[in-house]
Amino acid sequence: MAGFFAKLKEGLTKTRENFVGKIEEVFTGRKKIDEELYDELEEALIGSDVGVHSSLELVERLRKEVKKRKISQPSELNEVLQELIAELLGEEETLNFAEQGPSVILVVGVNGVGKTTTIGKLANRLKKDGKRVIMAAGDTFRAAAIDQLEVWGERSGIEVIKHREGSDPAAVAYDAVQAAKSRNIDVVIVDTAGRLHNKVNLMEELRKVKRVIEREIPGAPHEVLLVLDATTGQNALQQAKLFQEVAGVTGIVLTKLDGTAKGGVVLGIRGETQIPVKWIGIGEGIEDLRPFVPQDFAAALFNRSDEEGEI
């Protein structure tokens, strides 16, 4: 089986064509590094879903490196830009867990981004890592979400705490936390509704769920993960800003990175919200949700390395 790096590289093919293709067009055939080059690079980055703020920051950092390293050839800029992108994305950030007792991961995001599927895959991964896991069907407004979580539970042998459709999500979270405390469970993953049409309702609902969880387990939730769909590009960035405001997001899971040309949004999210991308999805399989490693992402994006093995 090919290593995960190879799969990541393959999954980023369309993003590479869009993102790196536009950048290489700017650099190719030029004799010198001038203002026109920087202006065109800025436009290319913005056009690749990187976002205005992150594009300006990358170009500014590139200017400084060019001066510092005394670079004169445009052909040398690709490698420098790859380094700067890895830097902008920061270090790999793992999930936060409680030092003792159950850890609670609250998962938020709009409908249709792959939230419930992400919970199922994450729960399966944590179980394989030796943790005892339960899932809470807190999206009580959609019967399909409850049913979908149950299917994942059956597939992975993980219990799902649920109530009827239309029940209070905070009550589901309460029952899940109580079950975790009484059964020596390591991790509780709580699904939430993804309605965005009324921000006030969403905010109040999430606050109530968080309040109930924290009352039962001080310091919880230990993670608030926002699931975003990479194929939506700038919409994903707007969702990140909204949920950062209403939910206190601690990490992002970016799904559907494979097959999209809009993977550059990873940079926009990190640069404009400072929220770390912690996990990425690059396929339909249960193993295709993996921790996000910025250096590997940058290397796969620029298609530089074939030496990496299994991650």
Score class of each variant (00 low, 15 high):
Ala6Ile: 12
Lys9Phe: 11
Leu12Phe: 07
Arg16Ser: 05
Val20His: 11
Lys22Ile: 14
Glu36Ser: 09
Leu37Val: 04
Tyr38Gly: 00
Asp39Arg: 04
Ser54His: 08
Glu57Val: 10
Leu58Lys: 11
Leu62Ala: 03
Arg63His: 07
Arg63Gly: 01
Lys64Trp: 08
Lys67Gln: 14
Ile71Gln: 03
Ile71Tyr: 02
Ser72Asn: 07
Pro74Arg: 01
Ser75Gln: 13
Leu77Asn: 08
Leu89Met: 11
Gly90Val: 13
Asn96Gly: 13
Gly109Tyr: 03
Val110Phe: 09
Thr117Ala: 11
Gly120Ala: 09
Leu122His: 05
Leu122Glu: 03
Leu126His: 11
Lys127Thr: 05
Arg132Lys: 15
Ile134Arg: 00
Ala136Trp: 02
Phe141His: 10
Ala144Phe: 07
Ala145Thr: 06
Asp147Gly: 07
Glu150Arg: 08
Glu154Ala: 14
Gly166Phe: 07
Ala171Leu: 04
Gln178Met: 14
Lys181Asp: 09
Asn184Pro: 11
Asp186Val: 09
Val190Met: 00
Asn198Cys: 10
Lys199Asn: 11
Val200Gln: 15
Met203Gly: 10
Arg207Tyr: 15
Arg207Pro: 10
Val212Gln: 06
Ile213His: 00
Glu214Ser: 15
Glu214Lys: 14
Ile217Cys: 02
Pro218Ser: 07
Gly219Trp: 04
Pro221Phe: 04
His222Leu: 06
Leu226Asp: 01
Thr232Asn: 05
Asn235Gly: 02
Gln239Ala: 08
Ala240Ser: 12
Lys241Tyr: 06
Leu242Met: 14
Glu245Phe: 14
Gly248Leu: 07
Gly248Met: 08
Val249Arg: 03
Ile252Thr: 07
Leu254Gly: 10
Leu254Met: 13
Leu257Arg: 07
Gly259Phe: 09
Lys262Asn: 03
Val265Arg: 13
Glu272Trp: 05
Trp279Arg: 13
Ile286Phe: 10
Glu287Phe: 12
Arg290Asp: 13
Arg304Thr: 15
Arg304Ala: 14
Asp306Thr: 10
